[in-house]
Design a protein around this nucleic acid. Structure first.
Lengths: 207, 207
DNA sequence: GTCTATATTTGGATAGAC
DNA sequence: GTCTATCCAAATATAGAC
């Protein structure tokens, strides 16, 4: 189709129809939707905003999605799929539990503060805007993702590098890492993503 | 006025007109508003919901507050005032930097998950719903509160008990502690507030 | 597949009686 | 200080032409 170089993990997900091609109409809309939902919140974003962001009229949106909520759900589903795949790859590439934790932290920080950051933020902060059936669906996807973390934290604990409860630690880390989108500004250059990762490891006595 | 026993810190704030008496019409409305804003989000809560929660009609609300946003702002202002006072008292009562940090963590966890939890959650998660001038006002109040944390974290660092940057640590802790509202259920009895506080201290190597 | 036009609903806010 | 009634604006979703 085209010769743009692309993350091979993303490409394989696109090929399997698990996430939309960012170059497609649907993909572009989801990308803009994620940005708007993060910046203004789901409720304050109108279908007119969404349509304008991709250069169409609001009525035309409903040719692609049945409702506004379906757009929110699609943003969340595709985001979890992509980030679960990225996490799995990051863990596989590391040799020790400590390095695996570092890889998980680094990857999640990058997801939150990097290219897919808008969508990750939406996933974290727009949960209440989802209807109940949609929540159940998203939750099931999220369990795989969380399982990756727990596995690594249990490894650390069994080798004596983690004194606290892995389950509690993962939840504390979820909050700590997702909250970075409210204050961390990688583009300022004061603190790199690697530097921030090391601060988290240091706080946990694992640097 | 009446003989209800009350936290003396809260009472002195009421006497100084810094927070509303929870028994007054205004106080009851703010309490219900906090609950609704937390459960449904500010945008999804209608003025009709707010009025119904205190048993009046929506038109009557505007006798007490000029706009819906003013209600949100009042919830936030009074919450910061109360919690800053509670934090100051907790820090003063502890003798070592380590105990002061423990007291701060315990108090913030209690604020988030206890009686004032709804309002604290609103403060954390409804920031985007505030207009710019209101944000500036709230931010100024919040600086005092944050200063308490930084002071204690700097003490810990200077005595070698904290390797990471106090500024970064506070922000990581803000996220970790506020996120507990999404998963921690003190009423289940699996983990007490003291137990959760110790988990946080343990994760930081300070138990 | 996108447009224009509009039906329909919802929700913030106001007016004036009591 | 609360009620009823209502205005007005905004927003989701639909209908039908091109």
């Amino acid at each position: 189709m085209c010769n743009v170089k692309r993350n091979p993990i993303l490409q394989s997900l696109i090929d399997d129809n698990l996430v939309s091609d960012p170059a497609s109409a649907r993909g572009r809309l989801l990308k803009e939707a994620a940005r708007l939902f993060r910046d203004k919140g789901y409720e304050r974003t109108t279908v007119r905003d969404l349509a304008a962001a991709v250069g169409i009229q609001s009525g035309s949106l409903f040719h692609h999605f049945r409702s506004k909520e379906e757009i929110l759900k699609a943003v969340m589903v595709e985001t979890i799929r992509l980030n679960t795949a990225l996490m799995q790859a990051a863990v596989s590439a590391a040799d020790t539990p400590r390095d695996r934790l570092r890889a998980l932290i680094r990857t999640e920080l990058e997801s939150i503060n990097g290219r897919t950051g808008e969508a990750m933020a939406v996933l974290v902060y727009e949960w209440r805007s989802l209807s109940e059936p949609a929540r159940t669906e998203i939750l099931a996807l999220r369990e795989i993702y969380e399982g990756l973390w727990l596995e690594v934290l249990r490894q650390l604990r069994s080798q004596g590098d983690l004194a606290a409860d892995p389950f509690v630690v993962r939840r504390l880390l979820t909050g700590a890492l997702s909250w970075t989108i409210t204050w961390y500004r990688p583009e300022r250059g004061e603190l790199s993503l690697d530097g921030l990762t090391e601060q988290v490891m240091t706080m946990m006595g694992l640097s």
